[in-house]
Every structure is written in structure tokens, then in C-alpha cells.
């Protein structure tokens, strides 16, 4: 499986889990570290999640994702597509 496919699967897993994660008030606006379609941990900051992935777990780059647990919409108008 390519790295892209692994990351896509992790993202699909996160999208499915998001409603459940959001239902827990204490998770909101925190960052989920996901690897092999498993939630490794939930952290206060993006930097903390990155450090756990890289330093503690020794995950290889492009095998894990970090996603913010939020229901906020994001807007960027200066995009060409």
C-alpha cells in the first residue's frame, strides 16, 4: 500500500470517528494522533501530537496524521481551485 493510501485511510477513519470524538466536550479543539486507523492519543496542541509521534512513538513520516477535533468551518478565499 502506498503512503498516500495509508494516509487516506487514516483520514477516512478520523472522519468516521469525528462525531463520536466531538460528543465528548473535553476533546474539542484538541488534536488527535492517528496511525494504522487507530487513535494513539489526544493532545492539547499540534506540537505535542507531533512530538509524541516523532520522539515517543518513532512513527515514520507519512504514516500518521494529526487532526484537530472541531466542528468549525475553514475559509480561504485566495485559492485557485
Amino acid at each position: 500500500m502506498t503512503k498516500e493510501a495509508i494516509l487516506n485511510r487514516n483520514y477516512t477513519f478520523f472522519k468516521k470517528k469525528l462525531p463520536e470524538l466531538l460528543s465528548e466536550e473535553s476533546n474539542k479543539n484538541k488534536f488527535a494522533l492517528i496511525c494504522n486507523q487507530e487513535i494513539i492519543g489526544i493532545y492539547h496542541t499540534f506540537e505535542q501530537a507531533i512530538n509524541v509521534a516523532k520522539e515517543e512513538k518513532n512513527f515514520e513520516l507519512e504514516t500518521f496524521i494529526i487532526q484537530k477535533i472541531e466542528d468549525q468551518k475553514h475559509f480561504i478565499s485566495r485559492v485557485l481551485y
Binding site: E4, L7, Y11, F46, I50, L61, E62, F64, I65, I66, Q67, K73, H74, F75, I76, S77, V79, Y81
Partner: peptide, 22 residues
């Protein structure tokens, strides 16, 4: 840059899913 996630973004042309990097 290595991809570390994805994000849904609303643009003038509609919603897109793009990569996030660190």
C-alpha cells in the same frame, strides 16, 4: 514537506479537501 493530515476548506469555488503539512 510531509503530509501530516487533511483539512476541509471552503473557498470561493466550493469546498475542497487539501493536505496539511508541518
Amino acid at each position: 514537506l510531509s503530509r501530516v493530515g487533511n483539512i476541509e476548506i471552503h473557498t470561493a469555488g466550493g469546498k475542497i479537501v487539501c493536505n496539511t503539512y508541518c
